[in-house]
Each structure stands twice: as C-alpha cells, then as structure tokens.
C-alpha cells in the first residue's frame, strides 16, 4: 500500500488541521513527560501546532475546488 492510499484511507486531507492538533497534543504530553520542569516549551509547542493547524486550514481552502457553479445549478461533484 503506497503513501497516497494510506493517506486516502485515513482521510488525512479532509481532517488535516485536526490531525495536526492531535499530533500537537501527543507531542505536548511526551514533552511534559520528558522534562517536567520546562513549561515554556510546552506553550511554544502548542502555539506552533495550532498555527500549523491554521495553516492547514488555509492550505485546504486554496486546494478546495469550487464544486458548484451557476449559483448551484450545476454540481461538479455529487
């Protein structure tokens, strides 16, 4: 199974922003376990992850084709 098929079956392109949030969540937990003293990096990690999620939303926006035309009279994708 190639990477594209795995990505498709996991719906990665549909939920890419959410996937980034989940990954951030896991990274924050691991970072907290590794070094319990440093809190500064945790906020930075969260902010970077959430910023990545916003960027992913922007990426999806740019790559979403207009599925409707003529004020909805013609639907390109059912």
């Amino acid at each position: 199974m190639d990477l594209t098929t795995i990505a498709t079956s996991l719906n990665t392109s549909t939920i890419l922003p959410e996937l980034i949030v989940i990954l951030t969540l896991v990274v924050v937990l691991i970072a907290d376990l590794v070094s319990r003293r440093s809190t500064k990096s945790l906020t930075a990690l969260s902010v970077v992850g959430l910023a990545g999620s916003v960027v992913a939303v922007g990426w999806q926006w740019l790559h979403t084709s207009n599925t409707l035309a003529f004020l909805g009279a013609l639907t390109a994708i059912g």
């Binding site: 949030v21 924050v28 945790l42």
Partner: peptide
C-alpha cells in the same frame, strides 16, 4: 501541560 492538553482536546 494538562491544561494545554485539555485545551487542545476542546479545540479538536
């Protein structure tokens, strides 16, 4: 840390 994790869960 836990606060951030819960916040991210709520966001999700």
């Amino acid at each position: 840390a836990e606060y951030l994790v819960i916040l991210l869960t709520a966001t999700l």
